[in-house]
Nucleic acid binder design. Sequence first.
DNA 1: AAGCCATACAACCGCCCCTTA
DNA 2: CTAAGGGGCGGTTGTATGGCT
Length: 213
Amino acid sequence: MGPLRDQSSLKPTEGKNNTASTKKEVNKGAWTEEEDRKLAEVIALHGAKRWKTIAAIAGLNRCGKSCRLRWLNYLRPNIKRGNISDQEEDLILRLHKLLGNRWSLIAGRLPGRTDNEIKNYWNSHLSKKIKLKEKQIKGTTSSSRKQGSKINYQIKVHEGDQEENNSLIFNNNKINNYESSNTTTIHFDVDDFFDFSNEGSLNLEWISKFIQD
DNA sequence: AAGCCATACAACCGCCCCTTA
DNA sequence: CTAAGGGGCGGTTGTATGGCT
């Protein structure tokens, strides 16, 4: 596995442009250490913007998007890779319940984690876990859910306010007042989200942090 | 030891929104 | 105001790796 491969080990379809090909085809596939180094150097000098220009200056035969992805997901400083903790996993599960597949928003709440990593983690680990859990629940408690106390909250996620200010507006009545603004309405079961009945005190730390933010 | 299959994850693609000229 | 290009995002694919038979 691993993100990096020596160009010499690339398959014939990969690293096309490393041959002195006549056509201006962009390089695709795994990044080499050399490419990473060049990209990092140029970004250190010019900053992480204008990706097409960065690719050109670095002499990388890559599209700007590819450079951006590589930088954001792997080369950028303070990136955490792998070893997603139980708390992080729990947070991902809850945030996904709340936000759906809004990976960038979810990643915004997990310092050092990228949307791509969370998305991958979800697809390979958590989605299966959830399906399994749902099966178990269906098998055991098909009709045991309490009805009366459930409040159906709607949450507005302000689209433009990612990163620092992706605050959520809890609103259980005057929803339509916000309809003109740039928002997305999400329905979720607040009872499920805040059901800590079978959790230790440790798991509560993140939620207080989350609310504080 | 070899082949097959499942899993994990890096990277690409396409759509859409935002910015800029 | 508008069109074009750039960038962000989620979905999907491709491939390396590890486990099992």
